[in-house]
């Protein structure tokens, strides 16, 4: 019963309102700490020079892009199974953030690639999978945007999301395998040369910051979706009239 209490939009709305500043503050502090470590504490890499520091953005963004897709699929599955509106709203609220992190990962990957391999884009297995993940995000958002009826839009998006999440490992595997067959680009982003502890820490802190940011932004988006969807209900009317 407790679960249903929090799943009700009218309880969620004020609760989210209280949580947003908390997560925003955490995101800000962690980002400042993380950036400080990445730029001033972490040593210069003897092979890659200063350019390597982009991984402190790139790697957390790549982690988040995959993680958020799975979280979206989780909410989608819950929504489809128990027909809870808030789950669909959460899945929908996460999509743009996930797409943003995917884009950042691709962008910074290109920036990193230029000094490392001398090319903006290499058909590396990870970068390619990331690109396809980006397409999957775009597909879900395009589908949701194309359907006017919110109920259908939610469900259709959720189904596509689930199909995508089943496919992601297969796509990743196939791309990796394709990559090893075509020996052209044997350089890999993954083989970070014996990373120093401090670098790992910076990356973890940055990932946490990204995580907090994602939660905060998703909550903001979910709140406005709740208002939009529930604008016919009494509690939203009362809320809007309460604030002149």
């Amino acid at each position: 019963m407790n679960l249903y209490y929090y799943a009700s939009p009218s309880t969620f709305y004020p609760l989210a309102g209280k949580l947003i500043p908390l997560f925003s503050a955490l995101a800000f502090i962690l980002a400042v700490v993380g950036l400080y470590i990445s730029f001033f504490v972490a040593p210069t890499d003897f092979q890659q020079g200063e350019g390597y520091r982009i991984i402190f953005i790139h790697v957390p963004a790549a982690w988040m892009s995959m993680f958020i897709y799975v979280v979206m699929a989780f909410w989608s599955a819950i929504g489809l199974a128990w027909n809870t509106r808030l789950s669909f709203i959460m899945a929908r609220a996460l999509a743009p953030t996930g797409a943003m992190f995917t884009f950042v990962a691709l962008w910074t990957g290109a920036f990193w690639g230029k000094p490392m391999w001398g090319a903006w884009w290499v058909w590396d297995a990870r970068l390619t999978s990331e690109l396809i993940l980006f397409f999957l995000y775009v597909g879900v958002m395009a589908l949701q945007a194309a359907i006017d009826d919110p109920r259908r839009s939610d469900r259709a998006g959720a189904l596509l999301n689930l199909v995508g999440v089943i496919n992601v490992p297969i796509i990743y595997f196939s791309v990796k395998w394709w990559n090893t067959l075509h020996q052209g680009s044997s350089v890999s982003l993954t083989r970070a040369p014996s990373m120093a502890h401090i670098m790992l820490w910076a990356m973890l802190v940055m990932a946490l910051a990204a995580w907090m940011y994602a939660i905060a932004v998703a909550l903001v988006r979910a709140r406005s979706l709740v208002l939009e969807r529930e604008r016919q209900t009494d509690w939203v009317r009362a809320l809007l009239e309460g604030k002149p």
């Binding site: 006017d148 009826d149 919110p150 109920r151 969807r229 529930e230 604008r231 016919q232």
Partner: peptide
């Protein structure tokens, strides 16, 4: 029955 956000 609801259509859109409207209760029919």
């Amino acid at each position: 029955c609801e259509r859109g956000e409207r209760l029919l």
